[in-house]
Simulated scan of single mutants.
Amino acid sequence: MSSNERDRLDGRRALVTGGSKGTGRAVVARLREMGADVWTTARTMPAGYERPDRFIAADTSTLEGAALVAGRLAEAGGPLDILVHVVGGASTPSGGFAVITEDQWLTELHLNLLGAVRLDRALLPAMLESGSGVVLHFTSIQRELPQYDASLAYAAAKAALRTYSKGLANELAPRGVRVNAISPGGIETEAYERFVDRIADGNGLTREAAKQTIHDSLGGVPLGRFAQPEEIADLVGFLVSERAAAIVGAEYVIDGGTVPTV
């Protein structure tokens, strides 16, 4: 295989969850640039979406949503070659452990752990039958650096996703399917920029001062900024390509140096 071919994904089918905006959208664009036939799923299809024939509107945090996605892909025929679980997020109110209700714990677990588990269970058998494939789970630096005030349930779910991902990798590698994880720190998405605006407006700060406040809450970001969605997508592109053919069960941290440990 030539050097150029190792960077290409021509003829491969991919699914990206949470692919309608932010990091997910950047991942979809990167995989398409590399030649893949990319499907994406999110709760709502954006207005004017350029490939509606490759979009599945579904809530993958639910049993019904996962089944809908698996059904649509089965109708399209053939196994997936690439599965990238980007979807995730935290919606817990601030106030520490005591304010996290039973329902809120379940919401975070379904979105950040069990949705990926269910889709894997539905989609990996065909991938295994074909004898090849790549799965990427998006974890978070919060599995190592949990923030207790408003995202403890999210951090716990992402830690569980990492453990699940490592065990799955060990099981599937002998059968030709590679499983790895990506652990992002802060990402400068549209949602992050809106969060910066709220911090700035609520505290009478400039946007730069608001960003510094956010960085300080994490103990600092040595790089001085969060990652761009396209930088995360570049890492995805590498890990699903043939250049990463010997990488199995790894977790790649991309956080500008935020996690202060080796």
Rank of each mutant, 00 (worst) to 15 (best):
residue 57 A to W: 09
residue 57 A to Q: 07
residue 58 A to P: 10
residue 58 A to E: 11
residue 58 A to H: 08
residue 59 D to W: 07
residue 60 T to V: 15
residue 62 T to M: 12
residue 64 E to I: 10
residue 67 A to C: 08
residue 67 A to K: 09
residue 68 L to T: 14
residue 68 L to I: 15
residue 68 L to K: 10
residue 69 V to R: 02
residue 69 V to I: 10
residue 70 A to E: 02
residue 72 R to S: 10
residue 73 L to V: 13
residue 74 A to H: 12
residue 74 A to N: 08
residue 74 A to T: 14
residue 75 E to G: 00
residue 76 A to V: 13
residue 79 P to A: 13
residue 80 L to H: 08
residue 80 L to E: 11
residue 80 L to T: 11
residue 86 V to C: 07
residue 90 A to L: 10
residue 93 P to A: 01
residue 94 S to H: 11
residue 96 G to H: 03
residue 96 G to P: 05
residue 96 G to S: 00
residue 97 F to W: 11
residue 98 A to Q: 11
residue 101 T to R: 01
residue 104 Q to H: 03
residue 105 W to I: 04
residue 106 L to K: 11
residue 106 L to E: 13
residue 107 T to P: 00
residue 107 T to V: 08
residue 108 E to K: 01
residue 112 N to Y: 08
residue 112 N to L: 06
residue 115 G to D: 02
residue 115 G to K: 01
residue 116 A to K: 01
residue 117 V to D: 00
residue 118 R to M: 05
residue 118 R to K: 05
residue 118 R to H: 06
residue 119 L to D: 02
residue 120 D to S: 00
residue 122 A to M: 02
residue 123 L to D: 05
residue 124 L to C: 06
residue 124 L to Q: 05
residue 125 P to M: 03
residue 125 P to G: 03
residue 127 M to E: 07
residue 127 M to L: 08
residue 132 S to E: 15
residue 136 L to A: 03
residue 138 F to I: 14
residue 146 P to E: 00
residue 148 Y to M: 00
residue 149 D to R: 00
residue 151 S to P: 08
residue 151 S to E: 12
residue 154 Y to Q: 03
residue 155 A to Q: 04
residue 156 A to E: 06
residue 157 A to N: 04
residue 158 K to D: 08
residue 158 K to W: 14
residue 158 K to Y: 14
residue 159 A to Q: 09
residue 159 A to W: 10
residue 159 A to N: 10
residue 159 A to G: 15
residue 160 A to I: 14
residue 161 L to N: 08
residue 162 R to T: 15
residue 162 R to A: 13
residue 163 T to A: 15
residue 166 K to V: 15
residue 166 K to L: 14
residue 168 L to G: 01
residue 169 A to F: 13
residue 170 N to M: 14
residue 171 E to V: 15
residue 172 L to F: 15
residue 173 A to I: 14
residue 174 P to L: 07
residue 177 V to R: 05
residue 178 R to M: 12
residue 179 V to S: 07
residue 182 I to Y: 12
residue 182 I to P: 15
residue 182 I to W: 12
residue 183 S to E: 13
residue 183 S to I: 06
residue 183 S to A: 15
residue 184 P to Q: 08
residue 185 G to I: 13
residue 186 G to I: 13
residue 186 G to A: 09
residue 187 I to Y: 04
residue 191 A to G: 02
residue 191 A to S: 09
residue 195 F to D: 04
residue 196 V to H: 01
residue 197 D to S: 03
residue 198 R to Y: 04
residue 199 I to N: 01
residue 199 I to K: 02
residue 200 A to Q: 01
residue 201 D to Y: 01
residue 203 N to C: 01
residue 203 N to D: 02
residue 203 N to H: 10
residue 204 G to A: 05
